[in-house]
């Protein structure tokens, strides 16, 4: 593994962990963090979350990382990984802590 890849993984991990814990708590999901794969679809057929849950996820990410998700940017909400991509992209170069 290249040092760049390791750096990328290290940057993603705290965001992933934070999001999983927050989603379980906020959405009252009967799951453990390890049960949520980073690529599983959050809405619809994956975790089965709905439009209200989607708004909650938006608030959760916006408040934790001081970013803004536009109303029509549904693609960002596809999975934990797409959320992490978005946060890192928005915070390019900066330190990301929840």
């Amino acid at each position: 593994m290249t040092p760049e890849n390791q750096q990328l993984i290290d940057a993603r991990k705290p965001i992933i962990d934070h999001l999983k814990v927050e989603l379980i708590k906020r959405l009252n999901l009967p799951l453990e963090p390890a049960d949520i794969h980073e690529d599983v679809a959050l809405l619809g057929s994956g975790l089965g979350l709905d439009s209200l849950d989607a708004l909650e996820i938006v608030l959760c990410v916006e408040n934790a990382f001081q970013v803004t998700i536009a109303d029509n940017n549904i693609a960002v909400l596809r999975s934990i990984n797409t959320l992490v991509d978005f946060v890192l992209e928005q915070k390019k170069g900066g330190v990301v802590t929840p």
């Binding site: 209200l52 849950d53 708004l55 909650e56 608030l59 408040n63």
Partner: peptide, 9 residues
């Protein structure tokens, strides 16, 4: 300042 909306409905 709204922190969570899931419970509002």
């Amino acid at each position: 300042v709204l922190q969570s909306v899931a419970e509002f409905p």
